[in-house]
Each structure stands twice: as C-alpha cells, then as structure tokens.
Design a protein around this nucleic acid. Sequence first.
DNA 1: TTCCGATTACTCGAAATCGAGTATTAGACC
DNA 2: GGTCTAATACTCGATTTCGAGTAATCGGAA
Lengths: 231, 231
Amino acid sequence: MAKRKVANPLAFAVLGSLGERPMHPYEISSLLKGRGKEVSIKLNYGSLYSVVAALEKAGFIEAVETLRDGNRPERTVYAITESGRAEFDDWLTELLGTPAKEFRQLEAGLAYLPAFPPDRVVELLEQRVVALDEEIAQLVGMHEFMQSKKFPRIFWVESEFRVAVLTAERDYAKGLAAEIRVDGLEGSAFWRRTHELVAELGIKPRDVLQDPVKYFGEDLPWLKEVPPEGL
Amino acid sequence: MAKRKVANPLAFAVLGSLGERPMHPYEISSLLKGRGKEVSIKLNYGSLYSVVAALEKAGFIEAVETLRDGNRPERTVYAITESGRAEFDDWLTELLGTPAKEFRQLEAGLAYLPAFPPDRVVELLEQRVVALDEEIAQLVGMHEFMQSKKFPRIFWVESEFRVAVLTAERDYAKGLAAEIRVDGLEGSAFWRRTHELVAELGIKPRDVLQDPVKYFGEDLPWLKEVPPEGL
DNA sequence: TTCCGATTACTCGAAATCGAGTATTAGACC
DNA sequence: GGTCTAATACTCGATTTCGAGTAATCGGAA
C-alpha cells in the first residue's frame, strides 16, 4: 500500500463531500458539522484549506468557479475529478478492509502504570470510568432520538461503533481498577510494596530494583529474568 | 486543562524513561523498543530528537554530559528535572483519569458507508475481521508466553487493553457485516436498491435523492426530515 | 435604530511531524 | 583478511498541522 499523496483523514471527508456535488471549502465544513461527521473525522479550518490545496495539486479535485459576494471573502467552488473518485474509492476500501496501527492515549498511560502507586491508579481509573459512562450515555441517548425519528441506522453506524469502542475501554478500565483494588493483579503486591518502601524510607524505586533480594527476598523469580520498567 | 508545552506522547515516554535514570536519546529509543513500548507509543527518530529539544527548552529535562566515542556521533545524556517529574506526574494523571477525544480510522470509514454498495461493504468488513483476528491471536499468544515466564501482568496491561479494544472493533465489524448481509440494518434496503438503480440505469445517486418518491414511493418518511449523506 | 453576538469565509505563521539519509563501528561468516 | 549486515547515533528539510486571528455580514433584541 503506497503512501497517499494527501494522507489527512479530513481529505477523505473532502473527497466524500465533493462526491455529492461541487462545493466551496467552508460549505464542506458546514456540511460535515451539520451531519455530525466532525465527531468521527477531525476538522479544523487551518487543515481544511491546506488539505484542499493539496488535493487540488494532486489532481483529485479542481476549482470550477470563484464567487464573490459584495465585500466578503471569495469562495472557490471545487469539484471532484475522476482521479479523485478513484482515490476516494481506494481510500474507503482501505479504511474499511485493512486495520491500521492506532494509538490510544489510555494505552500510553497504562504503559507507565507502575510509575504511580496502586491506590492512585485505582482512583484515576475510576474517575475515567465515570467520565466514559457519561459520554456513552450521551451517545446512546442520541441514538434513541434518531431511532424515534426513524432515521435509518445506516447513517449513524460510525457513532454506534464509537460506543462499542468506548464501552470496551470503560469495561477494561473498570475491571483493571477492581483487580488492582483487591491486589488481584499478579505482581501488584510487589508494586504496592515498592511504593510503600519509597514513601516510608525515602528511597528511590531504582534502589529497590537494584537490590530486590534485600527488600523482597528470593521469591520474585521474574525479577532476574526481565528487568521491570517504568518505576 | 491548559495545553502542554510539549504535547507529543513520545515526550511522555521520554520523561518516563529519564525518570529511571539519565540517558541519551538513542538509548531511550532502544529502551522503548526493548520493552515493546513502541507498540503503545509511536516512536520515530525524527520526532524523538525534536521532542527532546522541546523538552529541554521547556526545562523538563537537561543535558548532563556529552560523550564522544572515537569518530562516532556525539551522545548527549539528558536527565529529568524536578519540573519534568511534575509534568510527567500531571501527564500520567491526565492519561489515566481523563478520556480524550480520539479518532479511529474505521469510524471515518463507517461515516461514508453508504458510498459503497452493501455487498462491497460486507466483503471489506469480513476482510477486516480476519486481519483483526490474526492480530489479536498474536497478542494473546505473546501474553501466554509472558504468563508462562511468570512475568507479572502489571508490566503488560497496556497490551491487554489493546486486545480489548481490537476485540471490540472486531466484534462490531463482524456484527455489522452480518446485519448488512441479511438486510437487517434499517434503511439498508433503501441503500441496496439505490446502488442497484445506479448500476442498472446508469443514473447518479444524487438523482435518486433528488426525487426519491419516483424511485421508492411514499414509504420513506425520514427522507423528508433529514437529508441522507455520503451517497 | 443601533448594537451585539453568531455566522460566514478564509489567512497566516509558528510549531510539529515525518521518514529517509548519513556516517561510523562491531561482529559474523566465509 | 575481506566483505556484509546489523546496530549505533543522529541530522535535515520538506510537508503537515494547528488554532488563533481577521473581517465582513446577518438577524434579532433593546
């Protein structure tokens, strides 16, 4: 899969919008907002205009007319080209069919869990669960509204999917918090004790790691095999 | 929450690494790779050095020595400062406790589902499910290996979380494909028929939308209330 | 009538991001 | 002893991205 000439997801949305009919950039942004697509595709004005310029340069869209209305800024109307339709087609194919490597911020946080004492982590995860519950409830409420209006699901599956992902995140955070709370996570006794030592004796986590036998005895076989991280 | 001076997640990992001990940038990158953190936090050399420079400028880290080994490039060793520790602390607090707005590529794709005929979508989603299953199986296999080595879960929760998210994505994609396949998605009969008309009569989707009654009769009440999108 | 906030429509420059490129050395292998 | 690959350690500059700023117009309330 060769790299796209214009890789910003917003460019995908621009192609999708111009696939309907020619528009000027601001009109595209209004359309996306009106349809709630900015929830799924990050929209910002700075990017919009540079992305449109890049698409034009790549031959995926072309300016068809320039309107001027009194003293207001010019509006340049763009239309999609044949090559632009092909690009959109290829892009949508890729978006739907091929998973891409993606990074969630919670994943980054979890990668450094041991840096905080267990109780602090539990507290924060529970705070996240509350916030996620709210977000999910809001989306679900919106879905119910749309269902009541008989607006077909096909037009908001992306929001349903968002709920699915948020729910998975929520469930994982909740489960993890519960496990840490009862010390059920293997290794977490060691983790807790290390932070206690740090707090009580004023020593540094790395001191503990440098001579674990002194603080924990011989019953932590993995410490010798793999050096722990993040503490 | 005021914006961070250095917002790149890689900067978070740099602070986390230097929290352990002073290192030079390349050493940080090796450490992250060695621990598999680059799966959770995007690492690229270009960003690494500019992020380190930005962190230094912001006073979160400082150069402590510059080594030269024969004719090889200089290695500048950095250490975290007090203010850097505080920043890391605050950042991890945010990463764990506060959900951020995030965009998944499948969400972008789903937002333009109606642009493809149902059968094509089903095929692509099923292709994605297969790829996701493979990715998940690989991660699960790795987890089993680490478990067999008694390496504590606390050090790979981020990977567990990744599995949770990927599984949610997989399940959603699989369910959606199945629903579309049997035409169970409300509105999808309309969707299918529109693409059939496009294929058979050589007309454009927008023609169908401009005079839906002509092609579908009066039994699509929502068409009058909300204009459909993406076709 | 006039003021205010919202909407329309875009511009600009600073900062971030990327990934390919460079140059050296250590070790492997024949 | 020569060559080849992998690892070490960064550099560079072209894009991209961002979001705040600008400036005009419109509708409604005071």
